[in-house]
Structures are given as C-alpha cells and as structure tokens.
C-alpha cells in the first residue's frame, strides 16, 4: 500500500469523528437557529424570530451580566493568589513539592464534590459564618443574597482552579533568566520595580493563558449554580450554560437553546480576541 494512502487511513478515525460530531453539529446549529422545535413535533421555520427574541430576552442579558460579574472577581483574584503562592514556592525551600501537591488537590476533584462541600461551608449557620462570628464579624448571606451569590461562586471557583495556575506561574517564574534581576539590581531597581518591569512582563504568556482559560471557564459554569442555587436567588447566578440547559431541557425549545449557544460562542470568541489584542505582548528573551 502506498504510504500516502496509509496516512489517510490512519487519520480516518479523526475524519469520521470530525464529520459526525463537529461538522454536522456546526451545520445543524445553523439550521436550528432559524427554527422552532420541541424535538417531538416537526420543525417549524421561524426566520429570525429566535434572534429577535434573544435581543429582548432579559434573562439572556442577565446570564451575560452574571458571567461578567463572575469574571470580574474570578480573574483578578486568581492571578493575584496564583502569583503570590508561585513567588513563595519559587524560593529555594524544602517541601515545595508537598505544598504544590496540596494546592493542587481541588483541581483534580470533580466540580460536583467541590460544590456540595462549599454549599455546606456557605450555609447560613455553616463553617464560614461561624469562623466570621469567632473573628467578631457579622454573618455573610453567601448564597441567599442576590448580590453575594455570584461572588461566592467566583470565590469557590478560584479555590478550585488556582492550584493549576500556581503551577503554571511557577513554571513561568523558573523560566525567567536570573541575569535580568542581577542587572536590575546593579542599576538600583527596587524589588517592586523588578516585579513590575521584569517579572510581570516576562509572565505575560501565562497571564494571557489564565485570562483565556478563566473566560472559557466562566462561560462554561453549569453544575455549580445548578447544585448550589438553581440559578437563583432572583436569577443572580443564572449562567450561560445553565440558561441554555433550561431552555433546552425544561422548556424543550431546541431552536432557541441553539440560538443562545450560538450567541454565547460568538461572545466568547469576541472576549478572548479582545483580551489577546489588549493584553498579549511579545516577550523577548
């Protein structure tokens, strides 16, 4: 057999999988967005009705707003905490591997476990409020107040993911040549100046990565609000995927659910493109 033919044969699993599970769904989503369909009765062409509905759907905008609230808290918190611990781990200390392993435990565990656990920690008479009471502070209505619920989920998500970013920042820090700091020291740069003019710019690729992965994560939130709050109170934790899920499987509006998916995917592309455009820098080594 000719080697070229063998190449195609070896790639056949991917080609078939791509056609069935990527190309077809992508094409079919373009059909769905112009239809009304409950799976059972025949599809009905509705033209642009789904998009018109979307443009005036307050829950769609609410889900979008909730996602941006989540990202506005999650991203800075994640970068600050991850950088802080990565800097500490980057010193020549013993037991670094053990600490790294400990910070990483929540990363490998299912989001379902983390959510059930934090639901108890966040309970009105739960561990966190008891801790606050011991410190002489008031109770926080973590999951029961519409203004606290999304920030609470953002804090939980940071706790779950930050171990991964600590490891990534640590690898980034270890890649920065020592001479840069030595040269800066000779020129009399303070530690703070070194951080802002050497460390941070050199870590730019990792920062961009954290931004992009967190953004995708924010738009993929599902099981956290599903278990903790069901999207409430007052839709304050309704996430993009939870809303798609509700439209599709509570109300059987496949056309509209596909339209929501289409819109959120477009917004993800846009946000990630903007982040790369404004944050990404060339790093010279």
């Amino acid at each position: 057999m000719r080697r070229g033919t063998v190449g195609y044969l070896l790639c056949l699993p991917y080609i078939v999988h791509f056609l069935v599970f990527m190309a077809y769904p992508l094409g079919f989503s373009l059909v769905l967005v112009f239809h009304k369909w409950d799976i059972v009765s025949p599809m009905k062409w509705v033209g642009l009705a789904n998009f018109i509905r979307l443009a005036s759907d307050s829950l769609f905008f609410r889900a979008l707003y909730n996602t941006f609230i989540f990202l506005a808290i999650h991203i800075p918190l994640q970068i600050a905490v991850a950088l802080f611990f990565a800097e500490l781990l980057n010193r020549k200390l013993r037991l670094i591997g053990l600490f790294r392993a400990a910070y990483f435990v929540p990363v490998v565990v299912s989001g379902v476990v983390v959510t059930i656990l934090w639901q108890q920690l966040y309970a009105d008479t739960g561990v966190l409020n008891k801790l606050l009471a011991k410190l002489g502070l008031g109770r926080v209505p973590w999951l029961t107040s519409p203004s606290w619920a999304m920030p609470s989920i953002a804090i939980m998500a940071t706790w779950k993911n930050v171990g991964l970013y600590i490891v990534m920042f640590l690898a980034g820090l270890q890649g920065i040549p020592r001479e840069l700091y030595e040269a800066a020291e000779l020129d009399g740069a303070s530690k703070l100046q070194q951080f802002f003019h050497i460390t941070l710019p050199m870590l730019n690729p990792v920062v961009v990565l954290v931004l992009v992965l967190s953004t995708i994560g924010g738009f993929s939130l599902f099981i956290e609000p599903y278990i903790m709050t069901g999207g409430g109170p007052l839709n304050s934790t309704l996430s993009a995927v939870l809303y798609i899920y509700k439209q599709a499987f509570y109300f059987y509006r496949m056309g509209y659910a596909a339209t929501l998916g289409f819109a959120f995917a477009l917004i993800i592309f846009l946000v990630v493109a903007l982040q790369r455009r404004f944050v990404e820098r060339e790093v010279y080594v």
Partner: peptide, 18 residues
C-alpha cells in the same frame, strides 16, 4: 476544532443522539 466553544455544538449534538 480545538477553538470551537462547546456551547455551540451542545444542542445539535444532543439532537444527533436523539
């Protein structure tokens, strides 16, 4: 395909399963 958000293909893939 690595860049396509799953939100886009979720519902059509479910329809395929049906």
């Amino acid at each position: 395909t690595m860049m396509v958000p799953f939100q886009l293909t979720l519902i059509p893939t479910y329809v395929l399963m049906v």
